[in-house]
């Protein structure tokens, strides 16, 4: 690592780093394009994983092993995983349709995207041209991880703590909004269920099936109690009690 730090500090690009860059840069770019172009949302997410992995390796190459690993753990490991969760709940058959809603939108978006990329690329190129990076050696003097830790817990302690508080607040807010836990006394256990079943006024036996001794097998036809009365316990509450009239039950003459 020290060797790579020295190389990066002097602004030189080692052979291995150049090879890794020229292999991974097209991969990262392909991942980005694939993410936009993929029709299936899941494939799209996977292309994004590819890009993020390549970025992680780039950080490691740039003598920042800690940030590289954190990139892989946090982004590809955790956030992408949650993203995949959402995708799974959306369903695996959902693919984007290729119908263009606005005419010429795709061409315009492509042109604007290319233009923006060119603008940004040329700006970065002009800004960094001819200047050598300095200060990496001092920053990594006591080790990369130690350097980041020192900065986080001295100069940026308030920013760090505030970010942590914000994230915790967001997490707890999410939990409060999404989580429903019934209190222990509201939960009905088996004993309480049985007591409710045998409480006075409730008939503990099974309900009569609809249509017993009835003239029709429809669920709307109530069961007939042994004394001939109709039982409204046998039909769903939303259905009105309905007995077929004699006219309705007679043959309609359509059986031939």
């Amino acid at each position: 690592m020290t060797a790579s730090t020295l190389l990066a500090a002097s602004g030189a690009v080692s052979g291995g780093e150049a090879v890794a860059f020229w292999i991974l840069a097209p991969v990262a770019l392909a991942g980005a394009i694939g993410m936009v172009a993929a029709r299936n949302a899941m494939h799209s997410a996977l292309w994004l994983v590819l890009t993020m992995l390549s970025l992680g390796v780039f950080y490691v190459l740039q003598a920042g092993p800690f940030i590289g690993m954190v990139q892989i753990i946090v982004y590809t490991g955790a956030i992408m995983m949650l993203f995949l969760f959402v995708l799974m709940l959306v369903g695996r058959e959902s693919s984007d349709s290729l119908i263009e809603v606005l005419r010429g939108q795709r061409i315009a978006a492509l042109g604007l995207g290319l233009g923006f990329a060119g603008l940004l690329g040329s700006a970065v190129y002009r800004a960094t041209q001819g200047s050598a990076p300095v200060g990496l050696e001092q920053a990594n003097a006591g080790g990369n991880v130690e350097g980041i830790a020192r900065l986080l817990f001295t100069d940026y302690i308030f920013a760090f703590e505030l970010t942590a508080a914000l994230l915790i607040t967001a997490t707890i807010g999410g939990m409060v909004l999404a989580h429903i836990e019934r209190r222990k006394e509201d939960k009905r256990d088996q004993v309480a269920t049985m007591k409710a079943r045998f409480r006075p006024g409730n008939y503990p036996g099974p309900k009569p099936g609809p249509g017993v001794f009835a003239t029709s097998s429809s669920v709307a036809t109530p069961a007939r109690l042994p004394d001939g009365r109709l039982s409204d316990r046998s039909t769903p509450d939303i259905l009105p009690l309905r007995e077929l009239t004699a006219e309705e039950t007679t043959l309609k003459g359509t059986e031939k």
Partner: peptide
Amino acid sequence: DVPVAVLVVLALSSMAVY
């Protein structure tokens, strides 16, 4: 071995979920 070798293992185990 790298200065963040333990994190490499963590990263790999989180990738293994995929």
